[in-house]
Design a protein around this nucleic acid. Sequence first.
DNA 1: GTCAAATTTGACCAGACGGTCAACTTCTTT
DNA 2: AAAGAAGTTGACCGTCTGGTCAAATTTGAC
Lengths: 227, 227
Amino acid sequence: MIALNKDDLTKKEAGSNGIAGRVRQANQARILAAAEQVFAQRGFAGATMAEIAAAADLPKANLHYYFGTKEALYLAVLEDILALWLDATDGIRADRHPAVALGGYIRAKMAHSRTRPLASKVFANELLHGAPHIRPYLALELRRRVEDKVPVIEGWIAQGLMDRVDAKHLFFSLWAMTQTYADFDVQIRAVLGVATLDEKDFSIATETVIRLILKGCGIALPNTEDH
Amino acid sequence: MIALNKDDLTKKEAGSNGIAGRVRQANQARILAAAEQVFAQRGFAGATMAEIAAAADLPKANLHYYFGTKEALYLAVLEDILALWLDATDGIRADRHPAVALGGYIRAKMAHSRTRPLASKVFANELLHGAPHIRPYLALELRRRVEDKVPVIEGWIAQGLMDRVDAKHLFFSLWAMTQTYADFDVQIRAVLGVATLDEKDFSIATETVIRLILKGCGIALPNTEDH
DNA sequence: GTCAAATTTGACCAGACGGTCAACTTCTTT
DNA sequence: AAAGAAGTTGACCGTCTGGTCAAATTTGAC
């Protein structure tokens, strides 16, 4: 787990064993879910503890009992999101064909945009305002992960499996293309003229992005007789 | 001009002729610039009239004198941005080769991300929170513009100038890839390990996006002997 | 069953914020 | 130069918000 919060150990979670009581766990999860929703819709500044409390169906003082401050609650939400954030790159490995690895990555990111749009929005909002709470994390953790993957891309290039493309900027494009379906869904829904993005919309989006990227990078479909 | 604000005519701007005084124009421009900066950094909810006033180096009451309310000021900022927003699509015309038209569009959007990042951020923030102030505009104006351009793309496809790509989703990708350099610049700077994105970074980004998209759409370079 | 720890909750507070206003100064017109 | 219009500004106000707290209640270990 990434520790954003210096004082992350919430009260008795440290003192006794890690179980920390069923009630505590359940309430914290309930509050975190409500907070994610409200932070996603309103942003950090626009969210109020009262609204989060109402969404969690708990009195406001209860939120402070478990998380102390609004900022600590926000950090707890961000922490969950960051963990989610890093996992998807796992499939990008040198021993895979780029069509499989990148195609799978795009599919995973798209699925993430579909299933966890609120998480994506909270993260986007944090970035948009200069990442005041997670800048160190970006410069260390995220950067390191990308640095790990750049050689993989460059390996594929050296093997002639894809065109010479700037690996980092390729990632920026991938992130942008996939997350736009979560972050800016209002715009997409408005242009498509639909009330909600359904499974089919996401299917078309996913296939479009995969085709654009794979062909754009000059990646042929993996051919079993190639190797 | 797009009228977001029902009561947009600011006080005497309606009564007398349109000139409205040098002082008024200068102060309004000053306030709008300061407001764009603060709204971009803090979001609508996070921005305070006091901070905008400080950025404009004017007393707070002066802002209310010219714009009435915080929301009216925000709408005025958004209005300027929306006008900017629509212009870039002009180059997408059926009589142009897709490589020229789309390449130029990407260049224009990238230049926009470089020169007006604050405008992009204000717009992104508005979208992120569900576009409460501009949803009607999105569903009408923006949608109409896209509907106008879809046949152009499909014309190119019919002429065999590019692959069969979903035109709307192509636009979503173009917007996402280009605006990410303005909206989420913190993330990009963190990964690149630089303090600011300079001209060269934008140059690499622009060329990468253009190559990805043109090749991804199967668009060959325009060949003068083709026609 | 006892009792201490954990949890719940309504009432309350201080500060920040958007907005108002009346007194005052500067500009523009004739 | 007179006078009304336009612009300036510090002081002020009601409301909302994050956070506190003490009293009441529930939980869990022995």
